[in-house]
């Protein structure tokens, strides 16, 4: 099973577009990342630029409206994620709890959908949809 550990750093919602992480913190975090890698569970990892450099798209009323960041209404935003392989939710939580996170950071643990999680009719629908571009 796959789990995503979503890092939610408080204050990141209003951070400037050029904000740089603290070098000492990064070094500490790298040791944690290495421990995930050494254990063979780390599948992917990324950190995100702050929302002030991003955009949100709204789809209400059948129209696309693009709003540039920062987003006044957002109280929690993503700072990055780890994608790990774990046998259970508890194991994912155990890995997350080792993260050298600070007082103002929250990690949300979410299971990633895998194809087999879906009911046969949903799988069939996905399969049929994806099939089309293959036929030249």
């Amino acid at each position: 099973m796959r789990y995503m550990l979503l890092m939610i750093p408080k204050g990141y919602e209003s951070a400037g577009p050029d904000v740089q992480p603290d070098a000492g913190r990064v070094a500490e975090m790298m040791r944690y990342n290495e421990s995930l890698q050494r254990a063979g569970v780390l599948l992917a990892i990324d950190s995100l630029h702050p929302p002030s450099a991003g955009a949100r798209l709204h789809f209400a009323g059948g129209k696309v409206r693009v709003v540039d960041g920062p987003f006044a209404a957002a109280k929690e935003v993503l700072g990055g994620y780890w994608l790990i392989q774990a046998k259970s939710r508890d194991e994912a939580i155990a890995w997350a709890s080792r993260c050298p996170a600070g007082d103002d950071e929250v990690i949300e643990v979410r299971q990633v959908h895998e194809f087999g999680d879906f009911a046969p009719e949903v799988q069939a629908a996905a399969g049929a949809y994806f099939d089309m571009p293959e036929k030249r």
Binding site: A39, K87, D90, E91, I93, A94, W95
Partner: peptide, 10 residues
Amino acid sequence: RRAIDAVWRI
């Protein structure tokens, strides 16, 4: 108990 199992697994 489940948390300890997870630690054990790791």
